[in-house]
Structure formats: C-alpha cells, structure tokens
C-alpha cells in the first residue's frame, strides 16, 4: 500500500433546511492511500456525494461542513482559504459526477472546456493547450478527436460526454480522482466501456481513485479497499477481497443478501423497513431498527468506529457475530 494521501477525520456536514437539520454526513472517517482504487459504497442518501463535495469544499447551501478534518498530504483542507482551495481543486483533486452535464458547460465547445482547466493551472500557449486537449481525448478513447474538439456537449452521446468529463478531470494529472457514480445513468454496454476506461487509466497512471457507487459488483471489480456508508456514517472499512466473505457489519451482510446476482439465482433476503430520515436519525446505531442482531445497547449507544488490522467496523456486536457472505 502507498502512503496515506488523504485522511477524512470525523467529518460532519449538515444541511440546514426548513424542515430541520439534515445530518447528511455525521462523523465519517477513512484514509486513502496513494495509488489505490478505493470504493465508497452505500445506498441513496447514505452521504457518498456529500462526502466527496466536502473533500472538494463545494458543499452547496444550505449545507455546511460543521466539524472534522480533511488532511491532504499533511495539510488540513478545511483550514485553507478559498484561494488556496482553487489551486487544489481540479489540479490536485478532481471529480467526475454521475451526470456528466454537471461537469460540463452546455454553452462551450469541448475544446474550450478543456482549455479552461488546462490554462487555469499551467502557463501554456493556445497551441500547446490544443495539443494537450487532443492528447486527453485520445487518452479517454474518443474516436475522431479533432472533430470532437469543436463539438458542444449536447452533440455528444451520454457515454461520450462522460469521457469528456473524465478527460477534463484528468487534464492536470490530479493526485486523486473522485468518480461519483460515473456509470449510473448510462446504458449497460456504455457502462462497460466507462468501467474499462477507468480501470485502464487507474492502472496505467497509478492513479488514486475514489470510486463512489451503490453497486457491490462495481466495488468487487474496480477497488482494492472499500468504505461502506450507511445513513451518513461509516459502517465498515475493509479490503475488497475480504469484505465479501467475512464482513463484520450486519448492514454489509444484509445488503449483499438483498441484491440479486447475474451469475446465479439465489434466495433474496430483503432488509426490512427503509433507510432512515436523517433529520431525526435513529438513536444509537443508525442501523438498529433494521438490524437482525439488535440488542438494547444498540438503541442507547452509538457504536464507535473501531480500527483493527487494516479494517474498521462500527458495531457493538461485531466480535461475537461471525457474519458470512452468501
């Protein structure tokens, strides 16, 4: 494993809405090591996107980072001025969103969008920028790149737009690429293209990749370690090749039993209830209303995230439970 490049410590990001305070991210901690593909997996509303927006310091109002630290190469990003952040965003840490339209501006051509990021951080001539733009389009395997430079986003298909968004994110060879559900809105065969592209880029560029997804299949295929989020907090962190066989958190086990698989028919075990409302989350362990192993202590006391041998888990009972995969 490489050196620790990013450490999120007890991050809390809340949204102050009219209905109440949404505790979207409530004490999330994890580390990212240089060159690794790390997965962050969780369902809708578990806080995946808010975590990544917090790392980039682009949480939209009424959201606010309340407390915690985000240590990037030894420095706390939450202490940086907006000016300093601008030099980090896109240059050191870049993000690709689920919807490529939110990474791209509909009014500008592919070329000017790429130029914008290239020239923001590098002193280059127009011609050099253009060459770099072409190189980037080739890197993300866009056919006929010269012609595509002149295209507007709406003239491209969803898959092509996502490639342009990836090219744009990689323009300044960032230290860390965050990919937030980069394939979710795409057709299956186009998803496969983007997954293969990201895998290839990750291994070729030895890129630190944070892959955000709700799909355990994608976790298995593209990551080496994974952080499981549930309702704004970390349930467990583990090496990918261990978590499928020996998960420590009841939520991880329940999630795997609840999703059908392409490779065989199985007995589906739904998780009862629904994901909690984060304005008024359940007391103690947030999973307790749905957990088959709940005891009184789970209702009263929030389980700490305990770190042991490269893994971490937040469950009062993990030592006595021996959870198994399917």
């Amino acid at each position: 494993m490489g050196e620790e490049i990013l450490r999120v410590e007890n991050l809390k990001t809340y949204f102050f809405t009219e209905a109440g305070v949404v505790k979207a991210v409530d004490g999330v901690s994890f580390s990212v090591y240089e060159g690794e593909p790390l997965g962050i997996v969780g369902e809708t509303g578990s806080g995946k996107t808010v975590t990544s927006l917090s790392i980039m310091r682009i949480v939209p109002p009424p959201g606010k980072i309340i407390s915690g630290r985000i240590i990037y190469r030894g420095e706390d990003l939450l202490e940086k001025s907006e000016d300093e952040m601008r030099k980090i965003r896109g240059k050191k840490i870049a993000i690709v969103f689920q919807d490529p339209n939110s990474s791209l501006d509909p009014l500008f051509t592919v070329e000017s969008q790429l130029n914008e990021v290239i020239m923001a951080h590098l002193k280059v001539t127009k011609q050099e920028a253009r060459n770099r733009a072409l190189e980037l389009l080739k890197m993300v395997r866009i056919p006929d790149p010269e012609a595509r430079l002149k295209a507007y986003p709406h003239e491209l298909s969803g898959g092509m737009r996502q490639r342009v968004a990836i090219a744009r994110a990689l323009a300044n060879e960032p230290d860390i690429l965050i990919a937030d559900e980069p394939t979710t809105n795409l057709d299956v065969t186009i998803q496969a293209q983007i997954i293969e592209l990201l895998k290839e880029l990750q291994s070729k560029l030895k890129m630190t990749l944070i892959m955000i997804t709700h799909d355990m299949g994608l976790v298995a295929e593209t990551t080496k370690r994974v952080v499981v989020l549930y309702a704004g907090s970390v349930a467990e962190i583990a090496p990918t090749n261990e978590i499928f066989k020996s998960m420590r958190h009841p939520y991880t086990a329940a999630l795997l039993k609840a999703v059908p698989r392409i490779d065989r028919r199985k007995e589906l075990k739904p998780i009862p209830g629904s994901i909690p409302n984060l304005i008024d989350p359940p007391s103690g362990c947030r999973f307790h209303p749905r957990c088959p192993y709940v005891i009184q202590r789970c209702i009263e006391e929030v389980p700490e995230l305990e770190f042991t041998d490269q893994r971490a888990v937040a469950c009062h009972r993990w030592k006595e439970l021996s959870l198994k995969g399917e």
């Binding site: 299956v188 065969t189 998803q191 496969a192 997954i195 799909d215 355990m216 299949g217 994608l218 976790v219 298995a220 295929e221 593209t222 990918t240 090749n241 499928f244 795997l256 999703v259 698989r261 392409i262 490779d263």
Partner: peptide, 11 residues
C-alpha cells in the same frame, strides 16, 4: 456482450 458487461459481486 450485455451479460458480460455486468460486474459480479465476487472479487
């Protein structure tokens, strides 16, 4: 191709 595109939850 369609079936091979789906990631399987088995590392």
């Amino acid at each position: 191709a369609l079936l091979s595109a789906i990631p399987v939850p088995d590392p």
